[in-house]
Design a protein around this nucleic acid. Structure first.
Length: 917
RNA sequence: GGACGGUUAGCUCAGUUGGUUAGAGUACUACGUUGACAUCGUAGGGGUCAUUGGUUCGAAUCCGAUACCGUCCACCA
């Protein structure tokens, strides 16, 4: 229609030009989809980056920036924890890469002995094969088969999120070299005398049939019953007196584990407990099995708990065991390794411990030994891997003495040579390290690093790299050459291999001093979950000092725990973990990365909510549409006329950009990534899209100024660079769509920021301040229009009453356009028949065609007047306070005085307006 | 039982050495679709900063106590 009219008016030339622009617009519109469509774009760029080998790192003259990825279990599938963890690492790595560092991020997997062995056993069971029917070699070949098939799944899934890992360096804790290093480490520590064998109380997993370290035991509040049992008192007075005759009197004890009474070898009371004073040194008789046991005293016993009498079962309780050692008690082990009762129990032999508990309670009650039962809640240990109740058990295991190894590792964190973020974890670390216990490193499993110890038939053993060496050492040590040696069946705790990770991925132990390890080690940052601070972080620090003589990393960033909307920890058993791959399909990788980062405050847990992913997707679309807008502008017909004051917009944005860039850099140095992202988000959405683009947007008719167009492309590019570490795919795509480019944003070197916040020049400050004035004025006038129901399309005439006309220099054009004013003029007098409003210190009159609603205006002005008067009172109160004037700093005082005079000016202006109405 | 952390808008969080009558995102409300975007725009409402006592001219901020929540550690059967 417009074109038709133009032709009608014989303005043929203009019409023709306009028609061409329309065509061009149409063309661009077809080129770019309505919204950002991530799937194909993500795949395209990831492949491109791989083809270009951008993620591959080799030692060179640049500074290295190294991160070793915490290796996920080979059994793992991608979950929210991985996503959060690795997104953070990717952001740090990509940022470093763009800052000109040689960024190296090493991927890999952990063999996870218990978890993997459980998976393999389950797989075999499905095929109808039991583990016990297989030889070690047969089982391991199934396990490797399983690993080859499923062990890489998680790494493939990580690629979907765009992680810039150096895939050529992919490591596995059971790679040949790695395996050999673990064995060598064992031998070295054994030689040093810190690895030893010992029969001790350990946490036993009756399902996995293996020892667990303390850290692998999860304590959970558990509802139980406390049984009060009567033990008959024996007439016999001495140790040798074997009479089972009873005095007819009883002693009552309280226990939650009645099935262990067959293992009782004493009853213990507090020496000061008046109730039992006459029983010291006497004997009691265990119900049902009639074993006579001594009554001993120890101040370990709490008089107030239960009856104040404790049954002592040294084989089945950590504390009882210690008591037993102290008092040299007999140890009666009544359980098999699978948690069933053995011959020593005499009764219920072969029954499971919990089945036996039920039955024995019934029998005790029937025979009159059960006095009463109470409900009781206490913490019970469960196996982290199999979730069965852990059985304390005496067992011969391999141990690593920790005291000496821990010393330098503690010091380095206390001295902040290794920094923890957030720092609160330092205390936790210190406490654990100061109270460190020896580490049980053997596991009764096949999948893992086999303990390099060989035994003869007499139980004597040697530690050696291989069988031949074992025979040599054995001969040397015992002078026997005809012995038959058998290797230990057990393997090492998984963490005994992963504590070498930061240097062994560079073959730092197997090939000491090689080029890679000297270049990349110590690594820069470790990003991990606080749950494994003891399992892994602490031990890596120890290994670093023990084997490399250097700390493994400069900083540790502990991520939060990912929780669901209700604050519950995400877990498989709760089923509240979303399907990450489905989310990536739905929202795209960038949106997932955005969503998880924006919701992840530094040092806090992350409450995952899909709505933050939606926010990420919307952000993608916003940027996509900004791109479409810019592509519609045509720079070829540019004039140099600055029709709408675009040059102010250009200057202003330049300064905003540099301001935010400085802020972002500073936040990222402090690992405040979520806040950095918020700043970038707001810079793009608010400052760039909502303000800048609107300010430079050409009208329908005039083309955009060539210089402004060029600047706009430059700014958009800079924004994409800033955002790239967080959202790599869309930024790379837009980078290439903005202009024809040879290079990629992925490896683009960002400008070095020289200025710090303090160094921002006064002229820059002035521009930023003017920007604030402009925005406030626009917002204020739009508010007035809204309240007065002036239709958006309706133009106004604007009159400004200001003492400082110069402050509107260069922004009048933008202001007029943004508030749809057809004219702006200055005045010192009240303009009749207008809407008046006070914004900042200036007064505005708006002339419209609309009938005026003076009531509404009066209300608004009155409201503001009340607020200002209240404000003024508080300021005056402060200023009339002598002590304040005496004590406050000069700046503060000046500020208060300025506040006062500003408020007074505004009040006067508003009062004038009110009077005029 | 011990240690540490937290409590700010309906929700998720900022708030730098005490100094505008406390900010953001999201949710909410009103208005608005002709050309980047309704997955959007414009504007708005919303908080006794957990409670309480103190220090100070001045406290969300520093100190003490209380309550609640969380995490870790610990041997009360």
């Amino acid at each position: 229609m417009l074109i038709f009219l133009m032709i009608q008016s014989q303005n043929l030339n203009v019409a023709f030009v306009y028609f061409c622009r329309l065509q061009k617009k149409e063309h661009h519109y077809m080129e770019l989809s309505k919204n950002f469509e991530p799937t194909a774009i993500d795949e395209k760029w990831y492949q491109h980056w791989l083809d270009k080998k951008y993620f591959n790192s080799k030692p060179d003259s640049r500074e290295a920036y190294t991160i070793v990825m915490p290796p996920p279990n080979v059994t793992g599938i991608l979950h929210m924890g991985h996503c959060l963890n690795n997104t953070i690492q990717d952001i740090l790595i990509r940022k470093a890469r763009m800052e000109g560092k040689n960024a190296c991020w090493v991927p890999g997997t952990d063999h996870a002995s218990i978890a993997t062995e459980a998976k393999v056993v389950a797989m075999l069971r499905e095929r109808g094969i039991s583990k016990s029917s297989l030889s070690r070699e047969e089982f391991l070949s199934y396990a490797w088969e399983w690993k080859e098939k499923y062990g890489g799944i998680i790494l493939q899934q990580l690629k979907k999120l765009g992680f810039s890992l150096d895939w050529d360096r992919t490591s596995f804790t059971m790679d040949k070299d790695y395996y050999e290093s673990v064995i060598k480490v064992f031998i070295a520590l054994h030689k040093k005398g810190v690895i030893y064998r010992g029969k001790r109380m350990i946490n036993w997993d009756v399902k996995a049939l293996t020892a667990l370290s303390d850290e692998e035991v999860i304590r959970k509040e558990t509802h139980q019953k406390l049984y009060y049992l009567k033990y008959a008192l024996s007439t016999g007075e001495t140790e040798t007196d074997d009479g089972l005759n009873t005095t007819g009197n009883f002693l009552t004890i309280a226990t939650v584990r009645p099935e262990t009474i067959m293992g009782d070898t004493a009853i213990c009371v507090h020496p000061d407990d008046e109730r039992y004073k006459d029983l010291h040194g006497k004997f009691a008789i265990v119900p049902l099995i009639n074993r006579r046991i001594p009554i001993i005293t120890d101040d370990y016993v709490t008089m107030e708990f239960g009856t104040g009498a404790l049954k002592v079962t040294p084989a089945h309780d950590m504390n009882d065991n210690q008591l037993g050692q102290k008092h040299k008690l007999e140890v009666v082990d009544i359980f098999n390794e699978d948690g069933t009762l053995n011959e020593a129990a005499q009764i219920y032999v072969g029954e499971d411990r919990f089945a036996a508990r039920k039955k024995i309670v019934v029998e005790l009650e029937e025979k009159g030994f059960l006095l009463k039962t109470e409900d009781y809640t206490s913490e019970v240990g469960y196996s982290e891997r199999t979730d069965t109740v852990v059985e304390p058990r005496l067992s011969l295991q391999w141990w690593l003495s920790m005291k000496d190894i821990a010393t330098p590792a503690l010091k380095t964190v206390i001295d902040e040579e290794i920094k923890f973020y957030p720092p609160k974890f330092r205390n936790l670390y210190r406490h654990w390290m100061e109270n460190i216990k020896d580490w049980c490193i053997s596991r009764q499993l096949w999948w893992g690093h086999r303990i390099p110890a060989w035994y003869d038939e007499a139980g004597r053993f040697v530690v050696a790299t291989n069988e031949n060496e074992a025979y040599d050492i054995y001969y040397e040590q015992y002078g026997i050459d005809k012995a038959v040696l058998k290797q230990d069946e057990d393997c090492l705790d998984t963490w005994f291999s992963s504590w070498l990770w930061p240097f062994e991925v560079f073959k730092g132990y197997s090939n000491p001093g090689n080029k890679d390890v000297s270049y990349y080690y110590p690594t820069n940052t470790l990003v991990t979950a606080p749950e494994i601070i003891f399992f892994w972080v602490a031990r890596m620090i120890m290994a670093g000092f023990e084997f490399m003589d250097k700390k493994p990393f400069d900083a540790v960033y502990f991520t939060g725990i990912v929780r669901d909307k209700q604050g519950r920890k995400m877990s498989k058993s709760l089923g509240n973990s979303p399907d990450l791959l489905a989310l990536i399909d739905k929202y795209g990788a960038d949106a997932v990365r955005f969503g998880i980062m924006i919701a992840s405050p530094a040092g806090n847990d992350l409450l995952f909510d899909e709505s933050s992913l939606e926010q990420g997707r919307n952000f993608n679309n916003k940027m996509w549409n900004a791109l479409k807008l810019i592509k519609m502008w045509d720079d070829r017909q540019a004039s140099s006329a600055d029709v709408v004051g675009g040059s102010f917009a250009v200057d202003w944005f330049e300064n905003r950009l540099s301001e935010v860039r400085t802020e972002v850099n500073s936040l990222m140095k402090q690992f405040r990534l979520s806040e950095a992202l918020k700043n970038i988000y707001s810079l793009i959405w608010d400052d760039f899209c909502s303000w800048y683009l609107e300010w430079v947007k050409p009208g329908f008719e005039p083309p955009i100024d060539a210089a402004i167009y060029k600047k706009t492309i430059e700014y958009f590019t800079a924004l994409m660079e800033l955002l790239h570490p967080f959202m790599p795919f869309i930024t790379e795509e837009i980078y290439h769509l903005l202009e024809e480019r040879e290079d990629d944003i992925c490896v683009k070197q960002s400008k070095k920021e020289v200025a710090t916040t303090a160094q921002i020049l006064q002229s820059q400050q002035d521009i930023l301040i003017k920007g604030i004035l402009l925005k406030d004025t626009i917002t204020g006038l739009r508010d007035v229009r809204n309240k007065q129901q002036v239709k958006p399309k309706e133009t106004i005439d604007l009159y400004i009453d200001t003492k400082n006309k110069i402050s509107y220099d260069g922004i009048e054009g933008i202001l007029a356009r943004q508030v749809n004013a057809k004219s702006i003029s200055y005045t010192n007098e009240t303009i009749a028949a207008t809407i008046s409003s006070v914004i900042g210190k200036d007064k505005f009159y708006i002339k419209t065609e609309q009938p005026l609603n003076t009531g509404q205006q009066k209300d608004d002005l009155q409201k503001e007047l009340d607020h200002l008067k209240g404000f003024l009172v508080s300021v005056e109160k402060k200023l009339s306070n002598e002590k304040f004037v005496q004590n406050a700093k000069a700046e503060v005082l000046a500020l208060e005085q300025k506040k006062k005079s500003d408020a007074e000016t505004k009040i006067r202006v508003i009062e004038e307006s009110l009077a005029a109405l």
